[in-house]
Simulated assay, not measured.
Amino acid sequence: MKTLILGGTREARELADIASGERGFEIVSSLAGRVRAPVLPVGEVRVGGFGGAEGLREWLAGNGIEAVVDATHPFAGGITANAAAAAAALGLPVLHVRRPGWLERDGDRWVRVPDLALAAEAAAALGKRVFLTIGRQGVAAFANSEGWFLIRAIDPPEGAVPPQHELLLARGPFSV
């Protein structure tokens, strides 16, 4: 079965390895191209966008894809919606793979916000030292924030950064 895995995550790489090896699926993995030197999965790999749901639908049909697996990063909401729409339009099965979220525990102090702009506002009110691990693309939302930021990303941010920061370039997964 020719399967498109929308990936870029560790889970997507592991799935490509298992599906192509043990299961004999023909796998095409798609990466968004957000990281300069991605860790590549086994099999065929394409990098870059599709041009929305319609572009993805055309690509799926033109490449004989029989199933779609969305194993993208939890922040990648656009491709998840596009994958669901494109697969539905073609009657293809689609599987959404999501890593479990963090669980709130006794003693935690969670502050939920709907977007990065409000996260930047909330961070300023919570303390003077912030560990920011949102990826390089969202860092600019914190550029006018006071306080000190440890910014963990795979690649350096391209836009504005908070005036007081240290950049830690590292690729997960990480142990505690």
Rank of each mutant, 00 (worst) to 15 (best):
G138T: 01
V176A: 15
S20I: 02
G62C: 06
Q164H: 12
P156Q: 05
G52M: 02
A16H: 03
A88D: 14
A86S: 15
P157K: 05
A88N: 10
A84W: 11
S20C: 03
A141R: 02
N63D: 05
G62H: 08
L118D: 14
L92M: 05
A160F: 04
V139T: 01
W110Q: 04
P74N: 01
A61F: 08
L118A: 13
E44F: 06
R99W: 08
V111W: 12
E104I: 00
T80Y: 10
A160W: 03
N82E: 15
A124P: 10
G91D: 13
A122V: 06
L6Y: 02
A19S: 07
V42T: 10
L92G: 04
G52H: 01
D155F: 05
K2W: 03
V111Q: 08
A85R: 11
W102K: 10
G101F: 10
Q137M: 07
H165Q: 09
A16S: 08
V69M: 04
G172Q: 07
D70G: 00
A16D: 01
E66F: 13
L90S: 07
A76Y: 06
G43R: 03
V94L: 15
I79A: 10
L116S: 09
G64L: 06
L103A: 13
Q137S: 13
G62Y: 06
V161G: 10
G62Q: 07
A84G: 09
A19N: 01
Q137R: 14
G7T: 02
R112G: 11
E54I: 13
E166L: 09
N82T: 09
E14V: 15
Q164K: 14
D17L: 15
G159W: 00
F142W: 04
P41G: 08
E26R: 14
G21S: 15
P173Q: 09
A143I: 02
G101H: 05
E54R: 14
P156T: 01
P93A: 11
W148A: 09
E26M: 11
